[in-house]
Nucleic acid binder design. Structure first.
Length: 902
RNA sequence: GGGAGUUUAGCUCAGCUGGUUCAGAGCAUCUGCCUUACAAGCAGAGGGCCGGGGGUUCGAAUCCCUCAACUCCCACCA
């Protein structure tokens, strides 16, 4: 089989890991590494954003596990009250059941059944991706213990005076029929109209005018008008002082009031005041003691208050009232107008500002320590630009409306008393105790619990604490060990909803940050940069992708093109690249596996492969092998160091790229090619042993990114004990070069540099072959004028990789030799037949000469500039001097060559 | 209306507190190869006034100013 087939092994290994309990964590003496998953909506299904987010978490967790940490990734789901309740309501509607026909208990039964049937699908899907979560710790935000924590926190904050109840102007979602927090409202530009309405002046014309023209985008709200407001400095309206005007159609007489809130330049400079349905109007209404006329039902239809348009929807009324005004001659004009309208984040309905009784959390005290923790980098934001966003929001924070007029969620533990007033307590029984202080005769049946539930985020803000039961049992072993968690991986879209509030909760309830760092992912877009959506049909099904490219391939594809905070332009080609890489690894193993250390007499490989460690080598290890091992060992080491530092800065895709190139270019392209025995010959046992060791380390480095294929090959390399898996192996560290140096080897920086010179020479010879159409199989001779930049020790490697029959030191050149220079070393290749094309050669040489002379000029300019020599650091100047002498050497060689040819 | 970010090769992006031959990487493209691990591959090659303009400096993709385009966040102008 030439191609790797991921599907045949991926599910096998996931089950194996689970069966060995590798992902389960209990507190022990090791250092913990903790991540709590951003809990997806319990009824949600996996999309590309989840794939990205969870792959990132898995990479971090798997790496930490291999670095010797006690890694714990806590999975779970969120009850998502509005979204889930909306889904259940829709599902019931399909069956002809209206929510209003059900009791609370009946509805909740349906909801729980729905949750049991559809809930947690997403968690199963995460296993397909390879997510190494500790499934034994799976939590749901409405688990009894989780809900108990939420209620405990509510009671606690209430008793501290941080939660209050009051009538406020809130964002009302007429579709879900609940209040929303400010964060749940999305403002979007909308193409609307600006209507100019005529308000007749009571008692006849003033200054020749019989009416005031008022501009509004919402003519239907005139039903609730209680005043017309103008700016006191507006000369157009000074004469209206003390006058009243008639609300069109409605016929209500309302006063003209004066307040400099009104912008004289907008519309006509006259503003209608509807305190029940506009935040600003409400403020003005309070200031002037105006009546509040609420004209809407909770579902956005007109109520009976005014007796007009009763029962009709607000948008239908807008059209109708516009016509009626027109007909009555009360519409001056209508203009196109673009304005911002708020919509519900969940249902998409246009938000209606509505005055209602709600519960709020006082935020300023909570915000202060939470702001500090981020600004002084106690909690690190990656990328740091989100500190600005966070700072701005936290500094202007408003109180948090936490009550929702829904049934799915934690019910607010406030109990109303028959005689008025209420008590707040953890349980009805405790509530009764409190109630008894007011009236000892009360029984449980007299208490009426608040009908509303809490905002979903009021449970998720406790997530990093409550998953470890740190609210109910603040001193338990888990919370002490795993908290604070290490990294949080989430999208910037919920920085206020969730991240900020978790920090507040952490600081308030644990007096400690909830996590050490927040890695903000971008949004997964299609390759045209469009957001993925069902409507556009541009959102691929992750499970299909996994089936097609393997989980490793999909993970790799996403990881290669994501950096913190940047959106990912998703292209299936990326998964293809990931799959191809898996194939590359697979084939590298096939090659190594085919190598034999002993051969039978007839030249064919023995069926029985000698164990390299057992056999006594019958011959010296080839020098090219020894050098290749030494070089790759250094290369591996320097790459490890690089990867470490990239991880420290959360540059995961760069780290993967380093590993990718290490495997593909250095290991497969160079190392394996150097040590590869000729067909039909044996490999030296030492070389084979080293090669397998290298492969093992490479698999370890790659495992956090592509867990499946690495585990499969880990077991192919040798027979292993049940728990000897790459998943829980120890990540190689980058100190091995030092050990080797102690044995008398050369430092690895130097060997890497020397090897690069050989690479350049090989590439140059290959280019000559290509230009002259010389087959790679045809041996060439190489002549060299050795100097300090000629890595003579790699002679054997050079011969093998460039297909040379000999490398000979010479003093000078022959006109029939093709020449090239690596750094300062001059190389020549005698060409077999036909010789070289002198003219073409000369053109090339002269171009090169011109470039080198130009380069030398710029160097000389710097060096002859006294201010450069005087002010630049010594190292920079010395470097320029080296550049100068190198260039001069090359120019001399080029000139000599040109002289020969012409 | 405020604030932040982005702009470097066809695409996606690296280039940290100015100085190595600094103009890079991966992918894509082009050319030649089915060479006994891999055509999901190998070998080679091309490709960019670093958004425009100005300034600071011996020296600018990098620092400052300005203009332009795009993106995002926040904000109660009907």
């Amino acid at each position: 089989m030439k191609n790797y087939d991921p599907s045949s092994i991926e599910s096998k290994w996931y089950e194996y890991w689970i069966s060995r309990g590798f992902f389960h964590s209990e507190p022990d003496s090791r250092e913990p590494y903790t991540i709590v998953i951003p809990p997806p909506n319990v009824t949600g299904i996996l999309h590309m954003g989840h794939i990205l987010n969870n792959t990132l978490q898995d990479v971090l967790v798997r790496r930490a596990r291999m670095m010797g940490k006690n890694a714990c990734w806590v999975p779970g789901t969120d009850h998502a009250s509005i979204a889930t309740e909306a889904k259940v309501v829709a599902k019931l509607a399909e069956q002809g059941i209206k929510k209003s026909d059900l009791s609370r208990e009946e509805f909740l039964q349906h909801a729980w059944r729905w949750k049991e049937e559809h809930g947690g699908i997403i968690l199963k899907q995460l296993r397909t991706l390879g997510a190494s979560c500790d499934w034994d710790r799976t939590k749901f935000t409405m688990d009894p213990a989780m809900s108990e924590s939420v209620i405990k926190v509510f009671v606690d904050l209430y008793n501290k005076g941080l939660i209050y109840r009051g009538v406020r102007m809130v964002n009302w979602d007429p579709a879900a029929q609940t209040a929303l927090s400010d964060e749940e409202v999305i403002h979007r530009e909308q193409q609307g109209k600006l209507y100019y309405l005529r308000y007749k002046i009571e008692g006849g014309p003033v200054d020749g005018k019989d009416s005031v023209i008022v501009a509004t985008t919402r003519p239907e709200t005139i039903l609730g008008d209680v005043a017309v407001c103008v700016n006191p400095n507006d000369p157009r309206y000074t004469s209206l002082k003390g006058k009243r005007v008639i609300v069109p159609l409605v016929g209500r007489s309302v006063p003209v009031i004066y307040d400099d809130y009104v912008d004289m330049d907008f519309g006509t400079g006259a503003l209608k005041i509807t305190p029940a349905h506009d935040v600003n109007d409400y403020v003005l209404g309070e200031r002037f003691g105006l009546e509040v006329i609420d004209i809407f039902n909770p579902d956005g239809t007109i109520n009976e208050r005014v007796g007009l348009y009763v029962g009709q929807d607000r948008f239908a009324v807008r059209d109708q009232i516009s016509k009626d005004l027109q007909a009555a001659g009360l519409m001056e004009k209508v203009e196109d107008y673009t304005n911002k309208v708020g919509f519900s984040e969940r249902t998409g309905a246009a938000i209606e500002p509505k005055l209602s009784m709600q519960w709020f959390v006082k935020m300023d005290g909570l915000a202060e320590p939470a702001l500090k923790a981020v600004m002084d980098d106690t909690i690190r934001f990656v990328p740091s630009k989100y500190k600005n966003t966070y700072n701005h929001w936290m500094s202007n924070i408003k109180d948090w409306c936490i009550s929702r007029q829904l049934w799915w969620g934690q019910r607010i533990p406030a109990y109303f008393l028959p005689a008025g007033g209420y008590v707040v307590a953890q349980t009805p029984e405790e509530a009764l105790e409190l109630a008894h202080r007011k009236d000892p005769s009360l029984t449980l049946a007299d208490l009426r619990q608040d009908e509303d539930v809490l905002d979903t985020w009021f449970s998720s803000w406790l997530w990093p604490i409550s998953v470890f039961d740190g609210i109910r049992n603040p001193d338990n072993a888990d919370i002490g060990y795993y908290y604070p968690t290490n990294d949080l991986v989430t999208g910037p879209d919920i920085i206020f909803f969730w991240v900020a509030r978790m920090i507040m909760a952490g600081e308030h309830f644990r007096h400690n940050k909830p996590f050490g760092a927040v890695y903000f992912t971008g949004i997964v877009r299609d390759k045209l940069g469009r957001k993925m959506s069902k409507q556009l049909g541009n959102s691929p099904d992750p499970l299909e992708l996994i089936e097609k490219y393997g989980a490793d391939g999909v993970r790799m594809g996403l990881m290669l093109s994501t950096s913190a905070g940047n959106d990912v332009m998703f292209d299936e080609a990326m998964c293809e690249q990931g799959r191809n890489f898996g194939n590359k690894i697979w084939n590298a193993w096939r090659l190594i596996e085919s190598w034999q250390t002993t051969l039978s007499d007839n030249g064919h490989s023995d069926l029985c492969v000698a164990r390299p460690t057992e056999g006594v080598p019958t011959a010296e290890q080839p020098i090219s092998d020894r050098l290749a091992v030494e070089w790759f060992s250094s290369k591996l080491d320097s790459s490890l160091a690089e990867i470490d530092s990239l991880f420290a800065n959360y540059r995961l895709s760069d780290a993967l790229m380093v590993a990718y190139k290490l495997f593909w270019d250095d290991f497969s392209g160079w190392y394996l090619e150097i040590v590869k025995p000729a067909y039909g010959t044996a490999i030296h046992p030492h070389t084979l042993a080293s090669t397998k060791l290298f492969l093992e380390k490479l698999l370890q480095i790659l495992h956090p990114f592509i867990p499946f294929i690495t585990e499969e090959l880990w077991h192919s390399i040798r027979n292993r004990e049940a728990d000897d898996c790459v998943t829980i192996s120890s990540m190689p560290t980058s100190q091995e070069a030092d050990d080797r140096n102690a044995d008398g080897g050369s430092g690895y920086a130097e060997i890497l540099a020397r090897f690069d010179l050989i690479r350049e020479a090989v590439t140059a010879i290959r280019a000559i072959r290509r230009a002259r159409n010389i087959s790679p199989k045809e041996p060439l001779e190489l002549k060299v004028v050795p100097d300090e930049n000629f890595p003579a020790e790699f002679d054997a490697v050079l011969q093998k990789m460039a297909g040379l029959s000999s490398v000979e030191a010479v003093e000078g050149k022959d006109p029939e030799w093709e020449a090239f220079i690596v750094k300062t070393t001059r190389y020549f290749v005698p060409l077999p037949a036909g010789g070289i094309d002198r003219d073409a050669e000369l053109v090339k040489l002269r171009e090169e000469l011109a470039y080198q002379q130009g380069f030398l000029n710029t160097v000389m300019q710097k060096l002859s500039n006294e201010r450069f020599v005087g002010s630049a650091p010594a190292a920079i100047v010395a470097n320029e001097q080296t550049k100068r002498s190198d260039a001069e050497a090359r120019i001399a060689a080029l000139k000599e060559r040109i002289a020969q040819l012409s």
